Structure formats: structure tokens, C-alpha cells
Amino acid sequence: MATSSQSSVELGSHEVKDYICNACEDKTNVEKSADFYCKQCERFYCGNCIDPHGNALAKHTTFGRVEIDKWPVSKKVVDFLQTCDVHKDHTIDKFCNLHEQLCCPKCVSDQHRYVTLQLFSY
């Protein structure tokens, strides 16, 4: 997984924004939607930033939005998906077979204390 991949998660909502341009974020701290992903750089670029990247690094492989299935899942999206819906400061790390629910440590102590849980890894 690319460590520099970025996405924006709205605080207080379940909406995950699209990928953002790493170059714009680095230069101006602005979250502009990305249109391209560079496999070698492991970074996302908007339409304006891909041209300078392409001129300097012409042999790099880039994928546009039509090939978004080749883009990595961003770390922020993974973190968002692994966060407990009830206890926002906890990460989900167990599954309760009885209740058929994903659980964080706080859920386990509150609701699943007497149930055998299955640990899982990502």
C-alpha cells in the first residue's frame, strides 16, 4: 500500500472524499481532487500538477481515473474503515460470531464480554 496516498474524511460524517493531489497539498495545503496516480512516486496528481511531473519523470507509469482500479486504497480510507462506528477513538480488531458484528476493545468490554470472539488481521 502506498504510504503517501491521501484521501480526506469529513469529520463527524461517514462520507469519504475522493483522492486528493499530493503536490497541491504539499505546496499550498489545499485539498484538490486527484486525476492521476503515479506508480513509481506512489503519489496522486491533479490535471495541473501531472504535466510538470510528466516532463521531469517521463518514464513513470501514471494511471488516470479511467484506470482507478489500479490506484491503491489510501491510508486515510483504510483508517476510516477500521475505526469503530460507536467508539471513534478505537480500532476494530475482533468479530463477534454470536452477534455477527465487528468489535473494538471497548465494544467487547461493553457488549461482548461473555462471548468468544474471533481476532482478525488486515
Rank of each mutant, 00 (worst) to 15 (best):
I50R: 10
Y45T: 00
D26W: 01
T83Q: 05
V73E: 08
C24I: 09
P52K: 12
H53I: 04
C24H: 11
F95S: 03
H90P: 00
K94C: 11
C21I: 11
V86G: 01
N55R: 13
S33E: 14
V66S: 12
D26G: 08
D93W: 00
K94A: 15
I20G: 07
H90M: 12
C49F: 02
Y19R: 10
H60W: 04
C46K: 02
A58R: 08
D89W: 05
K27S: 09
E25W: 13
P52I: 10
C38G: 07
G47K: 14
W71P: 09
K76D: 09
K39H: 12
Y45D: 00
D93E: 14
N22A: 00
N48F: 02
I20M: 09
F36W: 15
G47V: 03
Y19K: 11
F36T: 08
C49M: 02
T62H: 07
F80S: 11
A34Y: 04
T62P: 00
P72S: 06
C41Q: 09
K59G: 08
P52A: 12
A58D: 10
C24A: 07
R65T: 14
V78H: 09
K59S: 14
G64K: 08
T83V: 08
K94I: 02
C21T: 09
V66C: 01
D35R: 03
I92Q: 09
R43S: 13
C49I: 01
L81S: 12
G64W: 01
Y37Q: 06
K75N: 03
Y19I: 00
T83C: 06
T62F: 05
D89A: 11
N48Q: 11
I92A: 09
R65V: 14
K76N: 13
T91R: 13
K70Q: 10
C49D: 15
D79V: 11
E67V: 01
Y19F: 11
K70T: 02
L81M: 14
D85L: 13
I68P: 01
V86K: 15
E25L: 15
V73D: 05
F63C: 06
F44I: 03
D26S: 10
P52W: 11
V30A: 11
K94F: 14
W71M: 04
P72E: 03
E67F: 06
H60R: 02
K70H: 01
Y37I: 03
D93R: 08
L57D: 06
F80H: 15
C21S: 08
K32E: 14
E42A: 15
L57N: 13
E67A: 13
C96V: 03
K27W: 06
T83L: 06
K70D: 01
C41A: 14
E31H: 13
L81R: 13
D35C: 10
C84F: 02
P72M: 00
K76V: 00
R65F: 01
K39C: 06
L81I: 11
L81P: 02
H87K: 05
E25P: 00
K75A: 04
E25T: 04
K59Y: 08
F63T: 10
H53V: 03
T91A: 05
Q82L: 07
K75T: 02
D26M: 06
Y45G: 01
N29S: 14
K94D: 08
D85Y: 06
F80M: 10
H87R: 04
C38Y: 08
C24Y: 09
K32S: 08
K59E: 14
E67H: 10
A58C: 11
H90L: 05
K27C: 08
V78Y: 13
D51T: 12
H87W: 01
Q40A: 14
C24R: 07
G54V: 00
A23V: 12
